[in-house]
Design a protein around this nucleic acid. Structure first.
Lengths: 212, 212
DNA sequence: AAGAGCATGTAAGCTGTTACATGATTAT
DNA sequence: ATAATCATGTAACAGCTTACATGCTCTT
């Protein structure tokens, strides 16, 4: 049962719900207010996604309706949902992930510390670093091959991509340094022993208009 | 008629076909071989996309079948297809484009010089530069607001995004410098008068396996 | 003759987009 | 009261993914 993979949006929702139980509307607000605008805040995407997650048993919603309160359904992760979230985060970073879904890798990294622990963050950074270094080499080769025949804009576009990856590679090293200075043991293998759970982004409660 | 927008993949195909008439298989090879791997090389995406473009009147395919040759259908841009390609490239770069579809902006830039002319490239770079500068300001504000409450991985992820945009902004300035040194007049308004058409990426003919 | 690669497609399924729809509650 | 906002949904549509299917040609 539940063979198909959870969609990227679904994983993003799992990650957010792990940080704090929320209603669909809360989640839409996050997507429309914060740097997560890369994801859609449209109800036609979020509510069906929540339903799917619930059918899978990853989340459970409870309707809150006190007197003088609007009806709202608050979703929480189930044990299974937590497991799925961790599985998603712990997936190895392959070249395909770097090429087609770098944003998803960054999302996994963003949730990694809270949902699994710092060692998972380090693991993502390490495989990302390796994958980037290898891919950058290939891109340089491609640039060298077509340098003379490509039009300026094409060459520049390729260069922009390469520079972006190089920038990310530098950031990866910095980030690893941050964790090293915090004395996070490099994850040789085995499971992480840390499980710190903190709630952040508490300032996301601000009101903001949302049109349907 | 033909109100719905052409999909991103469709536009990518238009751009490639403008550079050189190609069969579906040729296009798949480009997507699987070059830095355009970000786009799918699956036949289930490309052949239907080509059909849609043909139904719209943007491209026209002609079946080539000499003796001792495999049947292959080569597609060419029509006048309307060229117009649609130019319209897509000339679209102003909005913040939404930067947030949700930066890759599409870069694709438009990559094709801009051949399909429209250097002044179109410059125009894209200028609006991109402005949009990036403004967006980066907002992201810095967000980072400052949540710096203390966010977990390390979340903060680092946001920083990585910001650094990526800053890197792109620097590239934008470099690229504008390249065009300035080539004496491309800044496009005050009106249409570009240049229309240089060269064929590049002639080395993409190399063979490479593609599994169905 | 057999297998690998060329070249084109189709069909099912899922997901996101866009647009619409519905009530309840708070503000003016 | 009326409008705006809260909060949740649904329905039609388009596009991509995955998997399958089909013949033809070249190599060995």
């Amino acid at each position: 049962m539940a063979k198909a993979a959870i969609s990227k949006l679904g994983c993003a929702l799992l990650g957010l719900l792990q940080q704090r139980p929320s209603s669909g509307y809360d989640l839409r607000k996050i997507f429309s207010t914060t740097a997560m605008t890369t994801y859609s805040d449209s109800p036609g995407a979020i509510y069906p996604a929540l339903q799917r997650l619930q059918q899978r048993g990853c989340i459970r919603g409870s309707i809150e309706s006190g007197s003088g309160m609007r009806r709202r359904q608050v979703f929480r992760l189930t044990a299974q949902g937590t497991a799925e979230l961790r599985k998603w985060i712990a997936r190895p970073v392959l070249r395909a992930d770097i090429i087609r879904g770098l944003d998803e890798v960054m999302l996994r990294f963003a949730f990694s510390e809270q949902a699994v622990g710092p060692s998972a963050s380090v693991r993502i950074l390490q495989s990302l670093q390796a994958g980037l270094a290898s891919y950058i080499r290939d891109l340089h080769a491609q640039l060298g091959a077509g340098k003379t025949t490509m039009p300026t804009s094409g060459r520049l576009a390729l260069e922009s991509g390469i520079k972006g990856y190089e920038c990310l590679l530098r950031w990866t090293k910095d980030a690893l340094g941050t964790y090293r200075s915090r004395n996070i043991a490099p994850p040789r293998d085995g499971r992480p022993k840390d499980q710190e759970m903190k709630v952040w982004s508490s300032e996301l409660k601000e009101t903001k208009k949302l049109k349907n």
